[in-house]
Design a protein around this nucleic acid. Structure first.
Length: 170
DNA sequence: ACTGAACTTAAAA
DNA sequence: TTTTAAGTTCAGT
């Protein structure tokens, strides 16, 4: 839910994987969501809108779905109004290299609250910028951890980076 | 204002 | 192997 009242402009970006959803405010990319049945119909396709950032986002998405590395700078995101602790976690998350994973514990430590591992999981779960804030690179110390959109997506996104996430069953 | 759950973890019982 | 306690946020009551 929005924590501030800037106007939000929503678009879809159609790919072979489905229609992604990108939401912008004047401060930057506010949300970025995986294709899902919940993606509203009738959103305009992102083309020349949103200036250089819009172009940048489309290009980066295309690259990543192609298995190439590309990243958006931290300044591209509008995370104002999100909890401080979450932003620290996301910041640490953004630093995980392409094709590698870290644990929730690693992130908690990086955020300065080494015991807040569960809160780190919470922060991952409320990641508003899927893919570019790479919560799919965060796994549990034993298992694969969770993923809001379903573990199948987590595995796919990691597979694009050449990382094989084995799903263990208990 | 409380309580419990959430994409957890490590250590004790 | 099961239980517990740890930090942070949010939804529900």
């Amino acid at each position: 839910m929005p924590k501030h009242n800037l106007e939000r402009r929503r678009y879809r970006i159609t790919t072979p994987w489905g229609a992604w959803q990108a939401v912008f405010t004047e401060r930057g990319l506010y949300e970025f969501k995986l294709p899902s049945a919940r993606t509203p119909d009738g959103l305009p396709e992102l083309r020349g809108q949103e200036g250089p950032l819009g172009v940048r986002v489309r290009k980066a998405l295309r690259a990543r779905l192609d298995g190439r590395r590309d990243r958006l700078p931290w300044e591209a995101f509008d995370l104002a109004g999100r909890p401080y602790f979450h932003r620290r976690i996301w910041r640490a998350m953004q630093r995980i290299p392409f094709g590698e994973v870290r644990t929730y514990g690693d992130l908690a430590r990086a955020a300065g609250s080494p015991l807040a591992v569960r809160a780190a999981g919470q922060a991952c779960g409320s990641n508003p910028i899927v893919l570019f804030l790479p919560c799919h690179r965060v796994v549990a110390s034993k298992g694969p951890g969770g993923f809001g959109a379903g573990l199948a997506w987590k595995r796919k996104l990691l597979a694009l980076e050449g990382y094989d996430l084995r799903i263990k069953r208990g």
